[in-house]
Nucleic acid binder design. Sequence first.
RNA 1: GUGGCAUUAGCUCAGUUGGUUAGAGCGCCGGAUUGUGAUUCCGGAGGUCGCGGGUUCGAGUCCCGUAUGCCACCCCA
Length: 443
Amino acid sequence: MSEKLIKPQTLKGFRDFLPSAALARERLIDTAKRVYRSYGYAPIDTPALEYTEILLGKGGDESDKQMFRFEDQGGRDVAMRFDLTVPFARFAAQHAQELGLPFKRYHVGTVWRGERPQKGRFREFVQCDFDTIGTDSAASDAETLLVIHDLLVALGIERFSIRVNHRGVLNGLLESLGVRDKSASVLRALDKLAKAGREAVIKEMVEIAGLTSDAAESILRFCARTGPPGEVLSEVATQLDGVEISRLGIQTLRGLFEAADAAGVPASRLRLDLAIARGLDYYTGTIYETFLDDLPAIGSVCSGGRYDNLAGLFTKLPLPGVGASLGVDRLLAAMEELGLVADGATPATVLMTQFEPNRLRDYIAAAARLRGRGIAVEVFPEAKNVGKQFKYADRKGHRLVIVAGSDEFAARTWQIKTLATGEQTTVADTELVDAVSQLLNPG
RNA sequence: GUGGCAUUAGCUCAGUUGGUUAGAGCGCCGGAUUGUGAUUCCGGAGGUCGCGGGUUCGAGUCCCGUAUGCCACCCCA
């Protein structure tokens, strides 16, 4: 065999997951699912591939450019989904009759964007979305906020900030200044406030968006307001008194803060930020972005908003929606950077060593008894010397190692060693399951 | 899509103005130790210096291209 080896490699922005990373990712997803289900969101799934016309033009020019798109074997123009929200709008439009409204779903799925990779930014990544469709009630906007909060807490993240805003408020402001038509470019400039600073934003608004510097100044004065959300909202309400489209936004935002208060969300984790504007083109109302206080540079790990017209592209039924998306891979990258990801390359907590090959059936039987109690046990496949088997367990991250040789079999006992402490005990065969379970969950 | 930095063993990195057989730590494998890991001691394997071209008597080192990673834009989970 002298054929040239194929270089094992993955595509730019696409990654392999070794067990420790894959385990961490699965734990994260399981936790997210548990939180979603606790609010009544039901799971759904949709195809990775859609007709291009379903996806094209929904997220904006940028999404269109980043789409993986090709012709399938039947000559159909198809594309890989770049998020889970647009496919969901299609799904809801297609199945609204069977679902009943309002409808709440969660969806864990891989999405693809052909953009330049960076830390926490990949071409293939997993999102965990949850959305409510078929109601425009502000209660759903508020619930979305509560879910984001519970989600991060459940994932063990303590220090984070959810920033909220409402497009209606911004658009009302622009309308009052008579520059509503420049909305897209103005909001894009505004969104850079935190990063680029006040001067740069004003410059961009004037030079690129074509505002007068007076208009740019007053937008910044408006959006740079800080203080207790209630007070800021009152000031905003006064300033935009006659502007109809802002009224609902202000009211919805008030509802958000009231709900957060009622649910016991610490005020420190929630911020009204009148400068955040982004999100994909389809957002029409509330906007949410979540940043880790210890690693804000990685970007938002959970974003979303209200999109009242998206499904209208697929059906005449009114299907307003609101929801958000957890960026599983980005959050994982951040947690890895912050040292919050436990290593360990096995889901098993116990290693059953194989010492006497002719006793294999005893090892298997004991392992089966442990599994019957819900304990994950791995039986070592070879009767190698025990030192090797201990080393294997140490490396993989098993917590307990069980050993039995001729002495133990003669006495009908097992040796159980706790790797972390080095403590070892001998238990009777009849006590094995209780003893292991006790060692794994003391108290 | 634009610009910048980087790429040497599985991982993190040394490598002199271009000069013989490219090094370390960690990890991995084996042994001391067919009844005990993580600690100790000994030994071993593992590198077309990302890939392709060029300059040169000679390239890990200089030049060009390309791939990948990272950073700043853009945008976003």
